[in-house]
């Protein structure tokens, strides 16, 4: 036990790499997911089908296979650059996250009842405005929790980057295990680290959910529930 903690500087360094990779892929997957979902909801059939195929193509072989392919096989193709392990890992996991995230964004937007857009159209609200003011706030209350659980899984995905030699916490822990032969402590520590990271990520997204427009409106409505009716209406409208 003591022997393991003598290695704490290396372990801390590995943990830092893991956190760094996790933050990069989660932040990178966000715009990727929005773009892919926008293409997926496009009015042109060809774009819709192409983006659907792209999403399935990224999701179908698991991240491990993609990672190995990008790291070992891609540089062998003519004209392709040799990626460093860290770049390959971040690239592949970001792509994977964007593909999964796109489906969450799409499902969130499609879950808003069609009548809402129709009503906006009938009221003469422009398309952009109806999306921004009516559809998006309602969709966000579905998208953010979905993205939260995706982010939690993405932290767990980072465990596979050690296969191609990124020195994340799993890689370092394996090294420490080889040095100290204290398997139980090392892996309990590792499990605890990942558990804490995912729990922290869950908490962050729970806090984000509180900031969503619909939740704020709901709280405002609840706070003024005892007040006269007119106040409830203005509270909900804000």
């Amino acid at each position: 036990m003591k022997a393991v903690f003598e290695y704490w500087p290396v372990l801390a360094q590995g943990l830092w790499v893991t956190i760094w990779v996790a933050v990069c892929i989660i932040l990178g997957a966000l715009p990727g997911a929005v773009v892919l979902a926008a293409l997926r909801l496009s009015e042109t059939r060809a774009i819709r089908v192409a983006s659907m195929l792209l999403i399935e193509l990224i999701r179908a072989p698991s991240a491990v296979v993609l990672l190995f392919w990008a790291f070992y096989a891609l540089p062998l193709l003519p004209g392709m650059p040799r990626l460093s392990p860290l770049v390959a890992a971040i690239l592949v996991l970001t792509l994977d996250g964007a593909a999964y995230g796109a489906e969450i964004v799409r499902a969130g937007i499609e879950a808003v009842h069609r009548g809402q857009t129709d009503a906006c159209h009938a009221l003469g609200v422009s398309k952009i405005q109806s999306f921004r003011k009516v559809v998006l706030p309602q969709a966000l209350s579905q998208i953010v929790p979905g993205f939260g659980s995706l982010a939690r899984s993405m932290i767990k995905w980072t465990a596979i980057v050690s296969f191609i030699g990124v020195q994340d916490v799993l890689y370092v822990a394996n090294y420490v295990r080889g040095q100290t032969f204290d398997t139980l402590t090392v892996f309990c520590f590792l499990g605890a680290i990942y558990w804490i990271l995912t729990a922290l990520c869950g908490l962050t997204f729970r806090a984000l959910e509180q900031l969503l427009p619909l939740n704020r409106a709901l709280r405002a409505a609840r706070a003024s529930a005892h007040a006269p009716e007119i106040e409830v209406l203005t509270g909900a409208a804000q």
Partner: peptide
């Protein structure tokens, strides 16, 4: 649920693979 959903499968695999023989 909390235990098995918060820890990567790979870590659990290594854990069982190396700790069970001990």
């Amino acid at each position: 649920l909390e235990l098995f959903r918060g820890v990567p499968t790979l870590v659990l695999l290594y854990f069982t693979f190396y700790v069970l023989p001990e």
